[in-house]
Write a protein that binds this DNA or RNA. Structure first.
Length: 218
DNA sequence: CGTCCAGGTCTAC
DNA sequence: GGTAGACCTGGACGC
């Protein structure tokens, strides 16, 4: 559970930074915990399943993966499939059964690469000495993972330097901000948070998820 | 029933 | 190195 909620991560430096920002000071009360998955592989698969689709489709695809390839636990529930299980079925399975469309090739290639040792992604969450740029490069090398996916996965790994810019965060920022802003402008707005740039952006966007917090203009 | 598009990525200029 | 086009699917729309 500590892993899932990432409770061991030290965010004190970030809290000190937001204390000086009127629009983010609320976050110093202990926000910034990201839900993690047990494995980086699972997070990567789910991330691929979020790209260029509505959330309902993401849920549909992930459920299909779990139901068809996940090992049944003693409780009767299916676990998330292992890379081995996902590599053992052909790409056609992802098209025809999971209905993952063009993501099918990505999913199969990712699983196969992990099994073959080509992508050693489970280590990425542990190597604190490796700079964010290298972590990003490793993630961008994964099939179906681009700038959005890499930023998303890095947040889950406790690497908060990247902004998650996508069709949800861009308009959400514009709404809160009061007017549209280009990616570069958003980058500048949160630049002062340094290695917590992405986290500051994320909390700015999700402030209305926090119960009992008065949101300006709502 | 056709068009559009949703928490993008890849490839080819 | 930046930028169009293609890309699966299914649900939400307009007609």
């Amino acid at each position: 559970m500590r892993l899932i909620l990432n409770l061991d991560e030290d965010l004190s430096e970030f809290y000190a930074l937001v204390a000086n920002d009127p629009e983010l000071s609320w976050a110093a009360a202990g926000s910034g915990r990201m839900l993690r998955t047990p494995t980086v592989f699972e997070a990567a698969v789910k991330t691929i399943c979020t790209t260029n689709v509505a959330w309902s489709a993401t849920v549909r695809m992930v459920n299909a993966l779990v139901d068809n390839l996940g090992e049944r636990a003693a409780s009767g529930a299916h676990a998330f499939p292992t890379a081995e299980a996902m590599a053992s079925v052909p790409e056609s399975f992802y098209r025809e059964t999971v209905r993952a469309g063009y993501r099918s090739a990505y999913l199969h290639a990712l699983a196969s690469g992990v099994v073959a040792g080509e992508f050693e992604i489970e280590e990425l969450g542990l190597q604190a000495d490796v700079p964010d740029d290298e972590i990003a490069s490793r993630l961008l090398a994964l099939p179906g993972i681009g700038p959005y996916g890499a930023a998303h996965l890095m947040m889950l790994l406790g690497r908060h330097s990247r902004l998650i810019l996508d069709s949800w965060t861009r308009p959400k920022y514009a709404k809160i901000n009061g007017r549209k802003a280009g990616d570069a402008a958003v980058q500048r707005r949160f630049r002062r948070y340094g290695r917590y740039t992405g986290l500051a952006f994320w909390l700015y966007l999700t402030r209305d998820w926090v119960p009992d917090e008065p949101v300006p203009g709502s």
